[in-house]
């Protein structure tokens, strides 16, 4: 009797795999994990679960969230942008130099965004027209861009206290910090783009099966180029906000956060193989990584350990992605 039931009932492993194959499993797990994290830190630190601290976390991760939001559709479409954080660094430097040269600050910002868009076009052309590996292309671009930023400043940090500019890093609107608002709006816009527009379908089709997408007449190359531009412009916006927040432009201001950006996208459930992912997963992952940093700081854990934590979370996320792919039978 018992043996027959054992033969037919799904094993625990099978059940877990079935659960992982569900499309919402990733986001649901992240949400549970996020709530757990909030609960644990709330118990450990009396300063943690306050409106003030929550808004602080939001402000701290805003520029990272911007880059991760824009990186999500790009990875879904089969691309990858490692140059995004370097572009953020260059943007701060460019704005600061242009303002010093007498150009009005908002024109300087606009010009810096145009430069970023051109870098995005270059990334896109190299990966789609020449069919080079995006990892190599954007790694090279990262080196070029951060190198140029260093050359332009001689490696020094430049002051960036500019009249009528720093408010975007410091002010609040109805009590919510502006950087946080910019991030949330970006997530909303990209969510609509990915799920409600024709272009969004092209994104999922291009990453899900590029050859099939090409053969039904979808402009795969153009789709990916546009996404590289969006990623680069988001990098530039992130650099602008960061400069405004810090009141200074350092060539490598955002460089150390590249890993956080990629980690957030992967942790958020976006498949590195393309074709699968959502910005909400990325947002939750950004919040989780930001909360970890904030909570560990409040608990006086050294920032060196925070690097270790981030690496561990990233590797867990990648392993989970692999297991999920297997659950889907690839």
């Amino acid at each position: 009797m018992t043996t027959t039931t054992a033969d037919t009932a799904p094993t625990l492993k099978q059940r877990a795999m079935n659960l992982l194959a569900k499309p919402w499993s990733g986001v649901a797990m992240l949400l549970v994990f996020y709530l757990l994290l909030l609960a644990v830190f709330a118990i450990l630190s009396p300063f943690f679960l306050t409106v003030r601290n929550m808004l602080q976390i939001g402000t701290n991760v805003a520029y990272i969230g911007l880059m991760a939001a824009a990186g999500t559709p790009l990875i879904v479409a089969g691309g990858l942008d490692l140059s995004v954080a370097a572009i953020a660094g260059l943007t701060g430097v460019l704005i600061s130099l242009m303002v010093t040269a007498g150009i009005p600050v908002w024109i300087a910002v606009a010009l810096a965004l145009v430069v970023a868009a051109m870098i995005g076009v270059a990334n896109g052309l190299f990966t789609t027209k020449l069919r080079l590996n995006p990892l190599i292309v954007t790694l090279g671009m990262m080196s070029i861009v951060s190198g140029i930023a260093l050359v332009m400043t001689g490696g020094l940090t430049r002051p960036m206290m500019i009249d009528g500019f720093n408010w975007i890093g410091a002010e609040r609107f109805v009590g919510i910090p502006i950087p946080l608002i910019i991030m949330v709006v970006t997530f909303l816009v990209l969510w609509v783009m990915m799920t409600r527009t024709k272009f969004g379908r092209y994104i999922y089709a291009s990453g899900g099966n590029p050859e099939a997408a090409r053969l039904i007449g979808i402009p795969v190359g153009r789709t990916i180029i546009v996404l590289y531009v969006i990623s680069a412009v988001a990098g530039a916006l992130a650099g602008t906000i960061l400069g405004a927040m810090l009141g200074a432009a350092a060539p490598n201001a955002a460089g150390s956060q590249l890993l956080t950006v990629i980690a957030a996208i992967i942790l958020g459930g976006t498949s590195l193989n393309g074709g699968r992912g959502s910005v909400w997963g990325t947002l939750l992952a950004v919040l989780i990584l930001g909360t970890l940093n904030n909570g560990l700081t409040l608990l006086n854990v050294s920032s060196f350990w925070q690097d270790v934590t981030r690496g561990v979370v990233l590797m867990l996320a990648v392993s989970l992605d692999q297991v999920r792919s297997r659950a889907l039978g690839e």
């Binding site: 999922y204 899900g208 099966n209 050859e211």
Partner: peptide, 9 residues
């Protein structure tokens, strides 16, 4: 599989 379906849509 390779050139026809978009499996995740």
């Amino acid at each position: 599989k390779k050139e026809g379906i978009i499996a995740d849509l």
